[in-house]
Amino acid sequence: MKFQRKQAVILLAVLWAVVLYAMYQVLFSLGPLSEELLRFEGDPMRHGYKIFFFSMQAAAITYIAFAVVLVGSVVYLRTKNLKWDTIASSSAKVGIVFTTILLVNGAIFSNVGWGAYWNWDPRQTTSLFLWFILAAYLSLRTAVDNIETRARLSAVLGIFGFVGVPLTHISSTIWVSNHPQLYNTAQSSGFSLDKSGLTLFMILMTSFLILYIYMLWLTYKIETQNQIYQNILRGEQ
């Protein structure tokens, strides 16, 4: 059975319902941060920590989008099949949306936790670095006309750009950072969730993942149609 418009609408409606439910639960039912983690009386992080449920997912999807760009680029250079180039470029397009979401969420978190929307924390800086890499990748694609050359060059840049992902991931451990740690380190213990928090986290994570896959599929389809259209145009001349 082919995935049609009707199924897509149903999928999105269900997704929205689940996300809205989870968001409501996160915002109104989930308890505040445990007392020993608060830094002072009236700490805004008491409820402000809930931004974690939205920025963490965006970060994970950003990494996944980068990984798809990497895989698509490597496979394209190996097989020279344009399909993989289209997958890589679609992933970059969707990825830049999620990176923007990540940056906005990060800025809100930063304002709540540290008192300024942008305070050049290593996490924020390296996330911005990821955004710039995707922007560079997409602008290189607009500057090359020949389809094969474009695919080859952007694949090389896509592999190069993946360097940013490990760097972003380890940024808050190797630099002095105020960002909450995900793992236990020498300086601080990792941030952990209770059972209901973890369930909501997983629900939101799955929804974000489905949304990413759906957007990737949609972009891939549009790109493919666009290529067919371009071929027809070129055939007529």
């Binding site: 890499i133 560079a136 290189l140 360097v163």
Partner: peptide
Amino acid sequence: QIIVLPLLLP
């Protein structure tokens, strides 16, 4: 410039 500067940001 658009490509080199982002990759060199670190």
